[in-house]
Amino acid sequence: MPQTTHPAGRGRDLSVMTLEIAGAASTRTLSAVLCPREQRAKPLDDCLPCVDSQGEARDPGARPGFVECLGEGPARAAPAREPGDPEASLADRTPVQAVMTRVVIAVQADLPLERARALFLERGIGGAPVVDDAGKPLGILSKTDLLRAGAGRPGGTVADEMSRNVLTLPEQAPISEAAALLAAEGVHRAPVVGREGRVVGIVTVLDLLRWLAQQDGQLMPSGHSLQAR
Rank of each mutant, 00 (worst) to 15 (best):
P2R: 15
T5F: 08
A8R: 11
R10F: 03
G11T: 09
D13T: 03
T18Q: 15
T18K: 11
G23Q: 02
A25W: 01
T27N: 09
L30K: 09
A32E: 05
L34M: 13
P36N: 05
P36K: 05
R37D: 06
E38P: 00
Q39N: 07
R40V: 06
A41E: 00
A41M: 13
L48M: 11
L48K: 09
P49K: 13
V51E: 14
S53G: 05
R63A: 14
P64F: 09
P64R: 13
G65E: 03
C69K: 04
C69W: 04
L70A: 14
L70D: 09
G71L: 03
G71E: 04
E72Y: 03
P74A: 06
E82G: 12
P83E: 13
G84A: 13
E87N: 05
L90Q: 08
R93F: 00
P95E: 02
V96N: 03
T101I: 11
V103G: 07
I105N: 05
V107R: 02
V107Y: 00
Q108T: 14
L111I: 11
L113D: 07
R115K: 13
A116N: 09
L119R: 04
L119Q: 04
L121E: 10
E122Y: 01
R123E: 12
G124A: 07
G124D: 10
G127Y: 02
A128R: 04
P129M: 08
V130N: 02
A134Y: 02
A134V: 09
G135Y: 01
P137A: 08
P137R: 04
L138V: 03
S142H: 07
K143C: 08
K143H: 09
A149G: 14
G152A: 09
P154E: 12
P154D: 12
G156W: 07
T157Y: 02
A159K: 11
A173N: 07
I175R: 00
A178Y: 00
A178F: 00
A179K: 10
G186K: 05
G186V: 08
P191E: 12
G194A: 15
R195W: 01
E196C: 04
V200P: 04
I202Q: 10
I202T: 12
V203I: 12
V205G: 14
L206D: 14
R210Y: 01
A213Q: 15
D216S: 13
P221F: 01
